[in-house]
Structure formats: C-alpha cells, structure tokens
C-alpha cells in the first residue's frame, strides 16, 4: 500500500517468534521434569465425588476429606471420579489434575516439609463445589 520499508516490522516479528520459541522450550523442559514419576513412588488412589474426596493408600487404609502423608517420600496420585468432573488441587504443592469418570489421571509429588495444606476442587461440579475441600497433613516419617 505505502512505499515505506518494512524492516522494523520484520525485526519485531522475529523478536516475537524468538521469545515464543524460548517460552516453548522452557515450558517443555519444565513439563518434562515434573511429569517424570520417580520409581518407588507410593500410590494413593484419589476418588472425587459430589462433594468430597476419598483417599486410599497402598496398604488399604482409607481416608475421607483428609490425607496423611510423610515428608521425604514420593507419592503418585491416581485420580478418578465417581460422578461428574472434579479437579484435584493442592495449591501449595502446585498439584492439579482433573478427576474424570471413566479415566484415571496421575500426578505425583514429594512433600518436603511438615505442615497442613488445603485440598480443594478446582473444576465446577455443582451445588457445593465451593466447599469440596479437604486437608493434606504432611507428617514426620514414621520409621
């Protein structure tokens, strides 16, 4: 249309593309790291249903609404749902994975400090979605 040169725009687009490549590479690397489940992680089965969480440890003990884990161990959550979609979330440990009926989704973490953390549902699941909460207790290792 107009007779001016376009090199500033080309440089600008180049910078944007370079930035996006950098973002993609960094994100890819970080995702690869957090998705790699360490061997020997203890499995905890997480069941979401309207409107509470149930946890089943490897040794068969079940907990409702609260989850006790030991610090320094790795845990792998196997998450599924009995009714509608939920999303299992421990925000302090940046854990988030949808609980979807008919599927088992996994996510892992290794608690580092003793303490209490909120567990919540982050996917809309109906009437009491806002109060579908629980507590994570990280305790000293028993052995």
């Amino acid at each position: 249309m107009s007779g001016h040169s376009n090199w500033p725009e080309w440089i600008y687009v180049g910078v944007v593309i370079a930035l996006m490549v950098w973002v993609g590479a960094e994100a890819w690397e970080a995702e690869r790291l957090v998705e790699h489940v360490p061997e020997g992680a203890e499995i905890i089965k997480v069941t979401g249903q309207q409107w509470f969480w149930t946890f089943e440890h490897e040794d068969g003990t079940k907990e409702i609404g609260e989850l006790h884990v030991e610090k320094g161990k790795a845990y792998k959550f196997e998450i599924h749902s009995k009714d509608v979609n939920h999303s299992f979330n421990i925000h302090d440990y940046v854990i988030l994975m949808d609980a979807i009926p008919g599927r088992v989704n996994t996510v892992w973490f290794a608690p580092t400090d003793v303490g209490e953390h909120d567990i919540q549902c982050r996917e809309y699941c109906g009437l009491i979605h806002y109060n579908m909460r629980g507590t994570l207790y990280v305790e000293e290792p028993s052995s």
Binding site: V23, A27, W28, E31, S87, H91, V94, I95, L96, R122
Partner: peptide, 11 residues
C-alpha cells in the same frame, strides 16, 4: 500456554 504453569493457574 506454557504447560507446567497450568498446574498453578488452571481454573
């Protein structure tokens, strides 16, 4: 768009 950040920001 950065996938790991989804864990902290999604929903």
């Amino acid at each position: 768009a950065a996938m790991p950040l989804d864990f902290s920001t999604h929903d």
